[in-house]
Amino acid sequence: MEIRTFAQTDGIRFTLQGSLSFRDKDAFSPILRAANGPSGQVVTVDLSALESVDSFGIGLFLLANEQAAAAGVHLHLANPRGNVARVFDLANLDAVLHLTKPIAHQPTSARRRGIGFCRLPDAADGSPCAGISGRLVFAEHGDFQEIIESMLNVGGPRMVLDLHELEFMDSAGLSMIMIAREEAEARDMVLVLRNPRGPVAQLLTLSSLDFMVEG
């Protein structure tokens, strides 16, 4: 199972992809940590790309729910589909868990999704590599600051930001990247961008910043 983490203004959103089974205890641990607080935090687990779940996986959701209730965290399980929705129905989990079912037509969301961050395998030279996803715009200053600080603390000759999953970026996003670049240089690191696509690649070209893109 693949898990991705997205910071949001009121909490954290996770997306799960693939199959959740007894093999995924470690992969699931960020959700358990998030369910432990702080109080009032909203933790949303998007299940729309989760293809199957076994009884161990159900146990993990129930455990997260129990921890969230004890910590005062609002845990929402959103968009169970197909086999996952059927398993949840059969187990009557909607009586226990806060389930948000998918709607048939999903228009472009008005909700700010925030940016996601995941550590990727280090580059060949040992440099830290991270992927950013979502929309890097003026409202995401706080989240980006935390991401860059965590990257800088790892150290290495380069700091690689993979932008493949980044859907959109504005000039405030560019500003944040330029700040990251300068902070990296102050630590003798070189910031490298990788795999920008679509509007993000166009923006880097428009701004004459495509020289930062690897390759």
Partner: peptide, 27 residues
């Protein structure tokens, strides 16, 4: 996105960009 960012940050909230020149400034 650019126009909205300007309107919200500089217009309605009256914040200048001069702080956003370092990580500490961003904080």
């Amino acid at each position: 996105a650019e126009a909205l960012g300007n309107s919200i940050i500089h217009g309605n909230l009256g914040l200048q960009s001069d702080l956003r020149h370092s990580l500490a400034g961003l904080a």
